[in-house]
Design a protein around this nucleic acid. Structure first.
Length: 425
RNA sequence: GGAGAGGUGGCUGAGUGGUCGAAAGCACCGCACUCGAAAUGCGGCGUGCCGGCAACGGUACCGUGGGUUCGAAUCCCACCCUCUCCGCCA
């Protein structure tokens, strides 16, 4: 959510930032609406002021027993009341329209975000690991996975496309990955483990920015709850409507949850395999920080995610997303992309964003700086640490063997109950 | 699901339809007292919005949204949330 004051003060700067996102200028339209609204608001307030004044006088007159002048005043107020409701209604609808317009505008990119129209303009910043050289042709996990317990067929019968059932060692490996990630994030990386609600209300989803624009990407229950598309929603909203002490910041949260996405706009993309599912698990990281802490928190979050990939020995690269490829709420985003040998490409496995006060405004999440009376909005950050399903895919493909088996990475052995490889049934 | 109680400022907690943005206490800030601190005393202390260079003025806010009224924290309706008891249940 944008601060209308900033748009008033610097409309050209606002439009310029929107332009970097490839969006048309909006400040003129917003400014005009804002001007209209303020004029109406002033008129309404003046009307109310006169009404209040008269009402007070009525009270005083009646207190003195002067019912005659009280009646005169009442008549006066009555005429005022005839046209005040209409003004108020207009003012309200204008204010709501203005809010709706502001709520639909994405966050402005940070100054150091490269400009570009789409993912082709993302900038590779860093690359870790060397893709393994295979002495056979590496296979797609969608091809060799089913023999190892990646059961698309049964799941399709139960739930349709974009669902899978993990069985036996495959389920165990998935669980091991999740546990390993969670243990690292809650251990050395300092995130508090949270087991949050997966069904949330409108306000929560509005707070993180999925509503109102992206409702079609979400699942909704008959009770009107939304299934979280990411634990970012639940974790970030832990501080909604709160005033935190500066001493408590940063707050670091992590959660292993299922995530639910309708994939409405993704028809035909990644239809094979486990890459893009309606339901998947993810270890999410969220940090609530002061603006001053945000950059360091962002870096820490990136390290926390990269550490998992490195421990698993999965080659990856880090991309700084360009303006055109960032999510709605993000001011700056790094993507981690993991190497998939079957496709010979790097695929997104983590997205780590700082959102400035964009989400905080929507949630009204504030903190009180040390020694200050006024409150300020917090900065919110979120990232995957990591997407468990996609990590499973990466492990399967990078650790596959010529005989169709998969070797379990060493760091997962404590979680595997003695299993050191998955072998075809 | 049934019955009941309740949602008031950073916190606790008063509040008769009119002088209530709201008592009191705590917390916080300033001053006094003190060598210093504690204790005590005095004073201050909500937020958003609109207008104004500012001082300041106006307005809204007592869970949310409607309504009654000249006037609503207070009365009415709906909804949300919390708590207690009962029932059901992993």
């Amino acid at each position: 959510m944008h601060d209308i004051k900033l748009i008033r003060e610097n409309p050209a700067g606002f439009d310029a930032a929107l332009a970097r996102r490839g969006l048309a200028p909006q400040s003129a339209a917003i400014g005009a609406q804002d001007t209209d609204w303020r004029a109406l608001a002033t008129a309404v307030q003046e009307g109310l002021a006169r009404r209040n004044e008269a009402s007070k006088a009525i009270g005083q007159a009646m207190g003195k027993g002067d019912s005659a002048s009280a009646e005169t005043l009442k008549a006066e107020v009555a005429t005022l009341k005839a046209r005040l409701p209409e003004l108020e209604a207009q003012e309200k609808s204008l204010a709501e329209a203005l809010q709706a317009q502001l709520a639909a505008i994405p966050n402005l990119p940070a100054a150091d975000v490269p400009e570009g129209p789409d993912e082709t303009a993302n900038v590779e910043e860093y690359r870790w690991g060397t893709p393994r050289s295979f002495d056979f042709t590496p296979q797609d996990h969608a091809d060799f996975g089913p023999a190892l317990g990646l059961d698309f067929e049964s799941a399709a019968a139960i739930s349709g496309a974009r669902f899978a059932a993990l069985r036996g060692g495959m389920a165990r490996l998935h669980r091991a990955l999740a546990q390993y990630m969670l243990d690292r994030q809650t251990g050395a990386n300092g995130y508090e483990e949270v087991n949050p609600p997966l069904l949330v209300r409108d306000d929560a989803v509005f707070g993180t920015g999925q509503l109102p624009k992206f409702a079609e990407d979400l699942f909704r229950t008959t009770t009107g709850h939304w299934l979280i598309p990411t634990a970012e929603v639940s974790l970030t909203n832990l501080v909604r409507e709160k005033i935190l002490s500066e001493a408590d910041l940063p707050l670091r949260f992590t959660a292993l949850t299922s995530c639910f996405r309708s994939e409405a706009g993704s028809a035909g993309r990644d239809t094979r395999g486990f890459i893009r599912q309606h339901q998947f698990e993810k270890v999410e990281l969220v940090s609530i920080a002061t603006p001053e802490q945000a950059a360091a928190e962002h870096a820490h979050m990136v390290q926390s995610a990269q550490g998992i990939l490195e421990a698993l020995g999965l080659p990856y690269r880090r991309m700084l997303l360009c303006t055109g490829d960032m999510g709605f709420a993000a001011a700056k985003t790094f993507d981690l992309e993991v190497w998939l040998p079957s496709q010979g490409v790097y695929r997104e496995i983590s997205s780590i964003s700082t959102c400035g006060d964009f989400q905080a405004r929507r949630m009204n999440a504030r903190y009180r700086p040390e020694g200050e009376k006024a409150t300020r909005f917090v900065t919110t950050l979120n990232g995957s640490g990591l997407a468990v399903g996609r990590t499973l895919v990466a492990v399967l493909e990078n650790y596959q063997n010529a005989d169709g088996s998969v070797t379990i990475p060493d760091v997962l052995h404590p979680y595997m109950g003695g299993l050191t490889s998955l072998t075809p049934r």
